[in-house]
Design a binder for these strands. Structure first.
Lengths: 188, 188
DNA sequence: ATCGATGTGGAGGCCATCTCCATTTTCGAC
DNA sequence: GTCGAAAATGGAGATGGCCTCCACATCGAT
């Protein structure tokens, strides 16, 4: 991440306020009903300030997304340190579904924006992908799962879970996808 | 689909022209670089005509999408009639990846639009989902695959494949996802 | 050939997005 | 503490894409 310049005290405050407001609006799923300009006063700033900090909707989404990804990566490392490789992977994937389920609105918003400018957010996903790759290769080296499957395939499956946010039986289907992936991975 | 009124001869011609042009632009991946207004002359019609036939970008996408879905459903039925259930399912999923690979731009465009207004296109996907469900339940009844997994889970995985269009190793990963799903389905 | 019904097209209104700069705030130096 | 340069602010207004509207053209039944 570009921590190029230390940012003045007030600027940092405004930036934080924007991110907090964004998180709230995202979670409520109201992001698309809102003119981008109208979002600024919600965080107590002017439109100019909003645009300087986040030139586009996507930039704002990416910033929020980074927080999410960081939390998930922490979880991955934590699990990797306390469970056998295969169980760590399984637990992580299950937790991920839980996490998405607990933040429906956020996931929905991020998925939509991700589709629009996937290149921008794909960059943000790198950390997550590295975490998943770490879990997969550890389990494979351990011999607990096959080693002829690209970890990226699991990212794809997760992508599908996140993107299909509005299916009626989302939770059941998401769990089943994880089951299929995990059982598929157990094949020699 | 609403074939409510027979549509006058010239109207049908313009409509076809629009669809043909749309298909071309979609496939070239230029749909989002284009003002919707500028799209009309590309098909040799005025903006008014464009908007009457397709009130929104999404409506146009949905129309194109219907054609794709119909082709895939035909393929599903064809396979279901000529192969044992489990093989039909496997062949269909592999074919689907082929199909998407062969129409990258189209898939990319549709995936993006699907995320924006997924409700609109979810309706269009119903036929596809029914085809998949048919293949899955047939294979399950045959005892060739487990029966405790919701067919919707396979739709989710496919959704992931379609949505992750711009990953560097897309083809490899897509194939691996299908492998995981198929192997996962073979578990009792 | 006539005429009512149906379809056409593009000029113009509307409104969300983004820019620009006069004013205000911060903070290091003295 | 206070001064001044640099940084940040915010909202008025320009920009430009989306969509509507209706005078005119085309169709096709009689």
């Amino acid at each position: 991440m570009t921590t190029g310049k230390p940012l003045r005290a007030d600027a940092q405050r405004k930036r934080d306020a924007l991110l907090a407001a964004a998180r709230k609006v995202f979670d409520a799923g109201e992001f698309f009903d809102l003119r981008f300009d109208d979002f600024a006063p919600l965080a107590g700033v002017g439109t100019g300030t909003l645009y300087r900090h986040f030139p586009t909707r996507e930039a704002l989404a990416e910033a929020v997304y980074h927080g999410e990804v960081a939390a998930l990566c922490d979880r991955a490392h934590q699990l990797q340190g306390t469970l056998p490789p295969a169980e760590a992977l399984a637990a992580f994937l299950r937790d991920m579904v839980d996490h998405i389920a607990a933040h429906q609105g956020l996931a929905r918003t991020l998925a939509t924006l991700m589709a629009d400018r996937s290149s921008a957010l794909a960059e943000g996903s790198q950390a997550l992908e590295q975490a998943v790759t770490g879990l997969v290769t550890a389990a494979a080296r351990d011999g607990a799962i096959r080693d002829d499957v690209d970890p990226g395939a699991i990212m794809m499956a997760l992508h599908g879970i996140g993107a299909a946010h509005d299916r009626p039986h989302w939770r059941t289907e998401a769990d089943d996808v994880i089951t299929l992936v995990l059982d598929g991975l157990r094949q020699a």
